[in-house]
């Protein structure tokens, strides 16, 4: 059965928002990058996935985001298996349930800031006017005081990442994932991004942050360490 695109309301489901069980993933004949990985991500919490470079942190994030097909194992959202669904179904889940913040903002340099923010609304069949209205509200909320028609090449890195945050939050997702989202930011911009993640969790969302920054990891509610020396989950 395909899971609902809408986040669950009321108290019907009390388990983890996202659960991965025995996930195996690798490219070609190489040994798997992710081998028999299991984890749970709950609503109302910020979870940090930490570990040294090359240990597969980002791969796990994209795996949770249904962007890659598992070799073995399963990914569940609200208790329903979703990793085996068709590409179109997984894409719809990404568009409706997930908000992504990438390491380098990943904005389209050929389009305006406003168009970048509302881009994902196209994949949700949301009206442009409604999306633009919500985008302006988010720009105010994150103190992005630049004209909406400005291009990404004309703004700072901190502003670009806050715009990427607006894009991720535009569809009011219940799962927010970030791949080293604060890695290249000044302390003030980094604090803004982290506060947004905290607020998302406080309002019942599930936030998952990949980081190698011990400060960010320490700030999270839960940590999943992929370091071979300190592997495990801590709260």
């Amino acid at each position: 059965m395909m899971p609902s695109l809408e986040a669950p309301t009321g108290g019907a489901y009390l388990g983890p928002r996202v659960r991965v069980r025995g996930a195996v993933f690798g490219y070609g004949t190489d040994s798997p990058i992710v081998d028999d990985w299991s984890a749970e991500f709950h609503p109302g919490t910020v979870t940090a996935i930490t570990g040294p470079s090359g240990c597969g942190k980002s791969t796990r994030l994209y795996l949770l985001g249904l962007m890659v097909k598992l070799t073995a194992g399963a990914v569940e959202i609200d208790g329903q298996r979703v990793d085996h669904l068709s590409d179109a179904a997984r894409s719809r889940i990404r568009a409706w349930r997930f908000g992504f913040v990438f390491q380098d903002a990943a904005l389209d340099p050929t389009r305006s800031v406003l168009d970048n923010i509302i881009e994902a609304s196209l994949y949700r069949n949301q009206s442009r006017r409604e999306a633009a209205q919500r985008a302006r509200e988010l720009m105010d909320r994150f103190d992005i005081a630049i004209p909406p028609d400005r291009r990404p090449g004309q703004i700072s890195g901190g502003q670009a990442q806050r715009i990427a945050l607006c894009r991720a939050l535009l569809g009011e997702p219940d799962i927010l994932v970030a791949d080293e989202a604060t890695g290249n930011l000044d302390p003030r911009s980094a604090a803004t991004v982290l506060e947004a993640f905290r607020e998302h969790a406080v309002t019942g969302g599930c936030a998952i942050v990949v980081t190698h920054d011990p400060t960010v990891a320490g700030w999270a509610d839960r940590r999943i360490s992929l370091d071979p020396l300190h592997e495990g989950v801590s709260a």
Binding site: D87, S91, Y123, R124
Partner: peptide, 14 residues
């Protein structure tokens, strides 16, 4: 650009 679109929810057909 295309990778970002896929990550944000664009289907292969899109």
């Amino acid at each position: 650009d295309l990778g970002r679109r896929r990550a944000l929810g664009a289907t292969r057909a899109t």
